[in-house]
């Protein structure tokens, strides 16, 4: 299992989302996150905040494509999403004392769907647990 942060990244105008393994650029399919890389992390002590995630809710699933694996899509569970306006907490704040790497790019469109936070450019990180 990999815990990590999916950070907002745009795919407009060709995209600048970095992807490892010489793979493709990030997808602008709102169903998918690009999967730039992953590596082992040290676990987490973060209890999901049931009221924090929005439309996607805790444990909703997003799909990743991995140029490192190729041709396979993996589902990842959302633990924390946001923050949303008026909520003074973040997926990052959920990481207290824990190293959580970036594991993906989330397109702004997907972020809007998952987090229901309005403008994703004002916010923009999602905490994800991914089984591979």
């Amino acid at each position: 299992m990999i815990d990590g942060i999916a950070a907002l990244e745009s795919c407009d105008l060709g995209g600048v989302c970095p992807v490892y393994c010489g793979g493709p650029t990030c997808s602008d399919d709102f169903n998918n996150c690009a999967y730039p890389n992953y590596f082992a992390c040290t676990g987490h002590d973060c209890t999901p905040i049931s009221w924090m995630p929005r439309a996607g809710t805790c444990n909703s699933t997003v799909w990743f494509t991995s140029p490192c694996i190729g041709g396979v899509e993996w589902g990842g569970s959302i633990f924390d999403c946001g923050p949303c306006d008026g909520q003074w907490s973040t997926a990052g704040a959920c990481n207290n004392g824990v190293n959580l790497p970036f594991i993906a790019c989330v397109t702004p469109a997907l972020f809007k769907r998952l987090c229901d936070c309005g403008d994703p450019w004002l916010w923009g990180i999602v905490r994800i647990s991914l089984h591979v």
Binding site: M1, D29, F30, N31, A55, G56, T57, N59, S60, T61, W63, V72, E73, W74, G75, G76, S77, R113, L114, S129, L130, H131, V132
Partner: peptide, 25 residues
Amino acid sequence: MSIQGAKRSELSRREFLGGLVLTGG
């Protein structure tokens, strides 16, 4: 939803994302 990390080939995306409003392309 408790399912995590299943390959797409095992269950459809729509099954996973049934709780989301997916009306895209």
